[in-house]
């Protein structure tokens, strides 16, 4: 019988009015949490917002989020065949779902540049 990882994911655009969503993801040994999130986008819901660029090489450092309350890179955190809770970084301003404002202030566009 094939194993599954159960990802409980925080969704929303406002910290006060978000909700939790649970997805069962087919599990293969060696996969990352980012692999699981990308699987959900392709197979279940493409609106799930995640920030990533290099895909599992741990070069871009963009996929920071909280896994079971700990800050991790989703690309190097292993997917496991159990319940896993994934949330946006609590100490950063929320953008949407698992995406937060992580860029240095000087590199964030705010519309006052001239």
């Amino acid at each position: 019988m094939s194993e599954t990882a159960t990802l409980k994911i925080w969704r929303g655009q406002d910290k006060a009015s978000g909700h939790w969503e649970t997805h069962a993801v087919p599990f293969e040994r060696g996969q990352s949490v980012l692999d699981g999130l990308r699987w959900i986008r392709v197979n279940k819901d493409p609106s799930l917002a995640i920030r990533f660029s290099c895909i599992n090489a741990n070069a871009c450092k963009e996929c920071m989020m909280e896994l079971d309350g700990e800050t991790v890179y989703a690309c190097t955190a292993r997917l496991e065949p159990r319940d896993m809770t994934v949330a946006p970084l609590q100490n950063k301003k929320l953008v949407r779902d698992l995406v937060t404002e992580i860029a240095p202030p000087a590199e964030r566009f705010v519309g006052k540049e001239k």
Binding site: S53, C54, C60, E107
Partner: peptide, 17 residues
């Protein structure tokens, strides 16, 4: 100069890889 990226500055693309 206005330097922009669709990702974060200096993190995406091929160079970093």
């Amino acid at each position: 100069v206005f330097l922009i990226d669709r990702s974060l500055i200096g993190r995406g693309g091929a160079t970093v890889m």
